[in-house]
Design a protein around this nucleic acid. Structure first.
Length: 433
RNA sequence: UCCGCGAUAGCUCAAUCGGCAGAGCAUGCGGCUGUUAACCGCAGGGUUCAAGGUUCAAGUCCUUGUCGCGGAGCCA
């Protein structure tokens, strides 16, 4: 038996005979000549079988093998400009591991989204999904690398939580030994405890929101990275976030050019993603909306999707919108000391209409203010007692933010919908595979 | 939760005014030594989402329901 090889390394085997183990992605029958496109998860290579060059059983197999049958193909690696990828396998022998039973649902032709989502477990085998999920993996690795290299310690926060962080209507409830427990909406409050212990920390994990949101930017289960650090201010947060996001985008440009090209992503937009990012206040954002969109937009209202698009369209880079009205944001956001009606928060809006990819800001370090905020938001004190402790024992200014992985992937890949950015999306009231 | 659109062959879709259920792709068989969205020929393939109603006649019109898609609100 010849040397086993992965398709991604095939260029290093030119002139040698190798064995590729994979699946039949596609084929062309030319009579006495068969072309198979074989996929092994690392890539696709064209395997060419001439009738007189292979055993009769192998040729018969190639002629009749159905799409997505698993096969082992042995042949000589040849440089071949006519083949996709530039290399081709001149097959000397081939056998099947398992012949696909019946027709593979996902053909090289077009399909509707409903059908594709029903067959998500099989759709993952297609080249477009490969490109997206490889870029996702690179984005996650780049985020981790940047944080690890910049002094942030990974301290993961719990997924099962006893109480709501920001209200209860959007929580998934579970039965925890007979007591209600909720799937986490954010690691934020725990992050603050960790930041007071370790200085600079981050958590990275799944997050759950039972929101009745049925849009192209919402998932019920999504991944979020949340850095949090002591002695950090609103400006520090924006500096860190723009460095991290720029690093992520540049890493994808360097390492995933093939995948971006497969997605037909215009990378000129991505190449511009370098610090500094423009920063505007909520007040200024309202002016933009009033001037170019809704003239009657009320100060204190949250931005809708069209408003966010309008704002982000004014810039060629992601834009921070800071100093939101205090009443609009979570109870723990620090109010501006000079103008308490606004708080030291900022969201990062991605370009090209992708909306909010980061939310964050400076947290209040004041015990009395937080006690008052709990009352104002009708939150019970007992579950937050430990959180208030953080303001009793060496409270310091601190800040942090949360970046939504799926929205970031959708933006960088320029996808219509976040459902393709994760292998098995969990969407509103829908859980299939 | 609200608004809009849709459901016909395995898939993507067509079917005029209410009048014989169609195409392309996929599949099967045959042909072809450079295909790569191949090409050429032949063949098979239908509870028109469900239930009810109007009609001589319903894929088409009406009612209800189910599911899907798009958008809004809310959020990352």
């Amino acid at each position: 038996m010849s040397e086993p090889a992965y398709i991604q390394d095939i260029g290093g085997y030119e002139g040698k005979t190798v064995t590729v183990q994979g699946w039949v992605a596609d084929k062309t029958d030319k009579g006495k000549l068969q072309f198979l496109r074989v996929r092994d998860g690392t890539g696709v290579i064209q395997a060419t079988l001439f009738q007189k060059a292979v055993p009769p059983e192998a040729f018969d197999l190639a002629k009749h093998v159905a799409q997505e049958s698993s096969v082992v193909v042995t042949g000589e690696v040849r440089k071949e400009p006519r083949a996709p990828g530039g290399y081709e396998l001149s097959v000397s022998d081939m056998h099947a591991v398992q012949l696909a039973r019946g027709e593979f649902p996902i053909t090289p032709k077009e399909h509707g989204i409903e059908f594709l989502m029903q067959n998500r477990h099989l759709w993952l085998r297609s080249s477009r999904q490969h490109a997206i999920l490889r870029i996702r993996a690179t984005i996650i690795r780049a985020i981790r690398n940047w944080l690890d290299d910049n002094g942030f310690l990974l301290v993961d926060t719990p997924i099962l939580t006893p109480a709501a962080v920001e209200g209860t209507t959007t929580l998934f409830e579970t039965d925890f030994y007979g007591e209600p427990a909720f799937l986490t909406q954010s690691g934020q409050l725990y992050n603050e405890a960790n930041a007071m212990a370790f200085g600079k920390v981050y958590c990275f994990g799944p997050t759950f929101r039972a929101e009745k949101s049925k849009t192209r930017r919402h998932l019920s289960e999504f991944w979020m990275v949340e850095p949090e650090w002591a002695f950090g201010t609103l400006d520090d947060y924006m500096n860190v976030a723009e460095q991290m996001v720029s690093y992520v985008v540049q890493t994808v440009l360097q390492e995933r050019a093939t995948e971006l090209k497969a997605l037909e992503r215009d990378t000129t937009f991505l190449e511009k993603i370098v610090p500094p990012f423009p920063r505007i206040s909520y007040d200024e954002a309202v002016e933009i909306i009033r001037a170019r969109g809704d003239a009657n937009f009320k100060w204190g209202d949250d931005f809708g999707a069209p408003d966010e698009t309008l704002i982000s369209e004014q810039f060629d880079r992601p834009v921070f919108v800071h100093h939101y009205p205090t009443d609009m944001k979570a109870f723990y956001m620090a109010p501006d000391p000079i103008r308490p009606a606004v708080c030291l928060s900022a969201d990062l809006l991605a370009p090209e209409g992708y909306g909010e990819v980061i939310g964050g800001g400076q947290r209040s370090d004041n015990l009395e203010y937080l006690e008052a905020q709990l009352l104002k938001h009708n939150l019970p004190r007992a579950p937050y007692e430990w959180y208030l402790d953080l303001r009793k024992y060496g409270s310091v200014p601190h800040c942090g933010f949360g970046l939504g992985v799926e929205r970031t992937v959708a933006w960088i890949c320029k996808l219509d919908h976040v459902r393709e950015t994760i292998a098995f999306p969990r969407m509103l009231e829908k859980i299939m595979q």
